[in-house]
Each structure stands twice: as structure tokens, then as C-alpha cells.
Write a protein that binds this DNA or RNA. Structure first.
Lengths: 190, 190
DNA sequence: TCACATTAGGGACAAATGTCCTATGGGGGT
DNA sequence: ACCCCCATAGGACATTTGTCCCTAATGTGA
């Protein structure tokens, strides 16, 4: 749901404060609704969120949207496209006020080539992502909407995350109409 | 669909043939229906497929199965669980005769800590996976079954991959009944 | 070759989901 | 204060999907 990665965040923060990198890794602010990345564009920088909430979403050719995750502190983006030499898979949009570290391509590639701690940290991030993405896909395919929704509401509660109905539906891969029905069913049941 | 990774395979093959590792990284054979990994178990080794086809699947508590991918040459498994210190997320079962390199935990961890080329190669693998897993999830949530099925049939054709109807349904996250209906609709349409 | 298990195919009905449309209730801007 | 936009909520109907069956075909071991 709302992904954060404290250990990766600490690593990047420390890095950004070293003499070598302090003038190369800079903080950037984004207002709500601003885009950090735009689907389909070439990626020219790697971004690590310092603070704030964003939604990562894929728009299909039929106009529908799917939200794999909401990203927050310590989450990295753009690195997959760079390593795979692909254009941007998803758009990332600020939901709240966001600050993020901007890592230039040259710095990212330099770190990849020389810094094994960085490699290890990044690997852990990607491994976690594969894990969660697969688990989410499986869960959503095999359970009822109600069941998935209950889980989502729990997570929202736990993380104090307020998102629109439309985004909730996109996260679940359903329409708002179906979401409303499921919400009604859940509330009427207890 | 059927994932392979030639560059990672070459890397591992070369590694397994060096003096240092030739007695530590060994080939193992699996017959069809044998399990390479079992969901829920602790992971004690990393496996890289040399040859053959496997299916990777998640069984949910309601008994249903979801197949994120079919894995073949050069695909690695078990590494995510080790890096994240988790039990096995999915089961992996041989569909054809399979041979695979078994990499002991100690060797894997040693490589992670010391070999930056290995880190880079692995990172590329995981990045690709996140990319494909997200794309697949989005596609399946937002398009009709028929559309997803057509794509699946294309891929099967291109890769000359023969799988059971049940597995096709699990890959798409639907029941065989729905699969049959979709198949009929497609064939009747042209 | 026969018996049995496994896989494939589909009928009938119930349940879930999407589509289209309408209505309501703030919130922000002028 | 007024208007407009946008998010929310839900009715009505069509379509899709799942569930529970039962048969037909295919393959495998004794």
C-alpha cells in the first residue's frame, strides 16, 4: 500500500550529506498534483523520496488506470528504467507536498559501478518490490473485491492514509461503482 | 510469460566453471512435477535454471492458484527470500525435464558482498522482474479476459510453449470455465 | 486391452462487475 | 453570495464471471 524504506532512506541521506555528493544530490520540492515522472518519457534522473506521499500509476491504452503502489520516504524511482534502458513504465504524481533527492544519471551509474554497499541496499529494495508486487497481483486475482477492500481499509487505517475513492478503485483495479457497492456491503455487515 | 535471461545465465555458467566455484555450484536434475521450491518453506539455497521449463505459482488460503510467470534458462529463484529474510513466497514446479545450478547460501552471500559484477547482473534481473510483474498486473486488471488471452496465445505461439488449460487459467487469474468461454469467443470471431 | 485417472468442454443458474446516467453536497474562485 | 467544478453515491440494465454440475476424450499403468 504505502511503501516506505527507512534503511534505504538513511543510506541516501547520509550519501547526500557527504562532501563528495552534497553538491550533486539535491533536494527538490513538488506540490500536490505535480508529476515526478511521466509515463513513456525517457528517464534522465533517479529520484528518492525524502518526505510526502505520491501515487505511482500506469495508464493503459484504453484510458484506465492501475496503481501498483503509493510511494513515500525512502522509495526510489526511475532506476528500473535506467538499468533496463526503457522508457518510463508509470507516472508518479505527488499527492501531498513532497520533497525528494534528485540523483543525476552519472552519479547513479557511478555508484552502481563502484559502491557495493549501494548495490546491496538497492538489491534489497528491488527484491522487496518483486515480493510485494507478486503478492498483490496474486491476492487481487484470487480473492473477492470485498476481501481485498477490507485489507486495503485496514492498511489505510494503520497508516493514517487518506486517499480518494477513485484512487482506491484504481489501486484495486476496479471501477468506483464496484467500490461503492463493496463499501456498502462491508458497512452493512457488522 | 516464459521468462529467460541469457546474460545472467552466461554469467552464472562462467562462474560455475571457474576453479574457485566449480566444486560449489553444482547441477541438479528435476523431473516433471518435481518441486524446486516449496511455498512457505525456509530457503536454503539459490537456484538458477540451466535448461527446462518451470512454473512459479502462489497458492492462496482459499486454495486458488496464481502463476506470476513461467521460468526457464537463466532465471534465478530463492534470492528474494534470502535477501528479505522471508520464507518462500511461491512454489516452483518443473513442467519439463529441468537442470539447474544450485548455489549454496554461503556462496551467494559471498558473491553479494564481494562481487560487484554479480551485483550489477542480479540488479538487472530484479529490475526486469519488477517491470514485468507490474506490467502484467496492470494489464490483467484493466483489460478484458479475451484481450489478455489473445496476448497469451500470441506469446505461447511465439515461444512454442504448450501448457495445460488449467495453468493458462491460473496465469490469467481466472477459472477454466471462463477460459473456455473466452477461447470459444476468440475462435468464433475470425 | 481394459480400468481408471486426468484433462478438456460446456449447460444452467447465481453472483459480481461494468456501463451509463442522474443527483447531491461541499469548496474554491470571482 | 453565487456559480461551477469535482468528488461522492447509487439506480437500472447488460455483460461477464464463478459455481456446480455432467460428459466426452485422452493417456497411463497393470
Amino acid at each position: 500500500m504505502l511503501r516506505i524504506n527507512i534503511s534505504f532512506f538513511s543510506y541516501i541521506e547520509t550519501l547526500a550529506n557527504t562532501d563528495v555528493f552534497s553538491d550533486k544530490i539535491l533536494l527538490q520540492k513538488y506540490k500536490p498534483k505535480e508529476y515526478l515522472l511521466h509515463q513513456g518519457d525517457p528517464v534522465t534522473k533517479v529520484i528518492v523520496i525524502n518526505e510526502g506521499i505520491t501515487k505511482c500509476f500506469i495508464t493503459e491504452e484504453n484510458g484506465k488506470e492501475y496503481i501498483p503502489e503509493f510511494l513515500s520516504t525512502g522509495e526510489i524511482m526511475g532506476e528500473i528504467e535506467i538499468m533496463g534502458k526503457k522508457n518510463c513504465l508509470a507516472s508518479v504524481e505527488a499527492i501531498s507536498e513532497v520533497t525528494a533527492y534528485i540523483i543525476p544519471l552519472s552519479v547513479f551509474e557511478h555508484l552502481l559501478k563502484t559502491d557495493i554497499t549501494f548495490n546491496n541496499a538497492l538489491l534489497e529494495v528491488e527484491a522487496l518490490r518483486v515480493y510485494h508486487t507478486s503478492q498483490k497481483a496474486s491476492f487481487q486475482q484470487l480473492y473477492t473485491v470485498e476481501h481485498a477492500l477490507e485489507k486495503l481499509l485496514e492498511l489505510q487505517e494503520k497508516q493514517q492514509l487518506k486517499i480518494s475513492k477513485e484512487d482506491m478503485a484504481s489501486y484495486l483495479g476496479i471501477t468506483t461503482r464496484t467500490l461503492n457497492r463493496a463499501l456498502k456491503k462491508i458497512s452493512g455487515e457488522e
